[in-house]
Design a protein around this nucleic acid. Structure first.
Lengths: 142, 142
DNA sequence: ACGATTTAATTAGTTTGACTAACTAAATAT
DNA sequence: ATATTTAGTTAGTCAAACTAATTAAATCGT
């Protein structure tokens, strides 16, 4: 194998990431939720209850944007807002049982789809992808 | 290394892809173009002139969406539309010199940023990422 | 050869999600 | 006590996605 050029690898990986995500997105469409809403719900489900501002930061959007997203999720009965007892300005956003059920159901659907796409890979290939994922996370978080 | 679970790898890679793309997106903001416009311009620059419908399909959006994006690019003088001589319904969308210059300039900027992020990786790590990119493209295109 | 269907692109109108600016209310700092 | 900062919402704008409908040209089937 010739010595890889960092820029070339980066560009190729960039392109590959875009295409892979596009594919997987199709599975999430069935949930009936948009990407941003699903992502916020996911953070709340797996990261636990949170204030609006913390959630906005986690999702890299501004507070008003998250406020609207949460309002939509609340209207669907997927999250609930409670007053923060310690800070009366704050709200505590938590996933409802319905929201949790939707996430779990969606996760199963997505996994089934991913298993189909990734299931045909060899053990070595999976190991390569696994290592790559860790590297990507490291590079992205620097 | 333990035998990787396809679903777990897929999920991890999914998450890593999202974060990596988020990082890189920052570099493109400087171009003054939005993601979708930049992406369309990129396809035209590197893939050559194209009809609107082909371009729409390549970018996985509907024709009206692409029509608007191209109109925006045209207003900025980055692409030009010519009549298709063979099919009078069709248009041929091609990049202008100005569009090409913008892409080249943007590419240099992005590469400089990516070099900083990927430059610190070892040869082995780069090879892992390179192989992963190919696998991801294969999985995504199935 | 002609009417019907399909295809290419645009226009109109809606929805969603992003933003900033401006506001209220509460907490904190001077 | 007043000023400033922080948390969240509301109002208003914008870009980008969609569907439905329109126009024009190409192609298909009698």
């Amino acid at each position: 194998m010739t010595k890889p050029n960092p820029s070339a690898v980066a560009e190729r990986l960039h392109s590959a990431s875009i295409r892979l995500l596009r594919r997987v997105r199709a599975a999430d469409v069935e949930s009936g939720l948009s990407g941003p809403k699903l992502s916020a719900l996911s953070v709340l489900t797996f990261g636990g209850a949170s204030s609006l501002s913390v959630l906005a930061r986690a999702e890299q959007v501004r507070a008003p944007t998250m406020s609207k997203l949460v309002a939509g999720l609340q209207a669907d009965g997927l999250v609930a807002k409670r007053a923060d007892r310690a800070d009366k300005r704050g709200v505590r956003i938590e996933v409802t049982a319905k929201g949790r059920a939707l996430m779990e159901h969606g996760r199963k659907r997505r996994l089934a789809l991913l298993r189909k796409r990734f299931g045909g890979l060899t053990r070595t290939e999976l190991e390569t992808l696994s290592s790559a994922a860790e590297l990507m996370l490291r590079v992205a978080s620097e």
